[in-house]
Computed example of a mutant assay.
Amino acid sequence: MLMKWIQSLFPRHQEKKKELDQSSRRVALTILRYRESSKEIQAEIERNKFSKYLVYDRGDHHGGH
């Protein structure tokens, strides 16, 4: 009930909520695509048996190097 009251007073709020929902869906889709691509790349590396020659950067750059 409170949300309907807010929306009636502030139509821009409804537009912003719609934009936020669309953005959230785009981010979720991008993450899903990234995960799928990552799985495909990992599978290809395993099939080609060259993974032991790769150096992986785990992104842990917080320690003192």
Score class of each variant (00 low, 15 high):
4 K>Q: 10
48 N>Q: 13
8 S>F: 15
8 S>Y: 15
2 L>C: 02
28 A>V: 00
15 E>Q: 12
54 L>R: 04
5 W>D: 05
53 Y>Q: 10
2 L>R: 02
20 L>Y: 12
49 K>W: 01
50 F>M: 14
10 F>R: 01
18 K>R: 05
59 G>Q: 09
47 R>E: 12
15 E>A: 04
62 H>F: 01
18 K>V: 09
12 R>G: 10
53 Y>V: 04
45 I>R: 01
48 N>K: 01
51 S>N: 06
21 D>H: 04
47 R>M: 13
25 R>V: 15
60 D>G: 06
46 E>Q: 07
29 L>Y: 03
5 W>L: 12
27 V>P: 00
31 I>E: 10
30 T>E: 14
44 E>I: 03
36 E>I: 00
37 S>W: 01
1 M>C: 12
63 G>R: 04
12 R>H: 09
5 W>G: 02
54 L>S: 06
57 D>K: 05
39 K>P: 01
50 F>K: 08
52 K>T: 03
56 Y>V: 00
19 E>F: 02
15 E>F: 09
1 M>N: 10
4 K>G: 08
4 K>F: 03
31 I>F: 07
13 H>Q: 13
35 R>L: 11
55 V>M: 08
57 D>V: 05
58 R>T: 08
45 I>Y: 09
1 M>R: 14
35 R>E: 08
28 A>F: 02
16 K>P: 01
27 V>H: 08
49 K>V: 14
13 H>G: 04
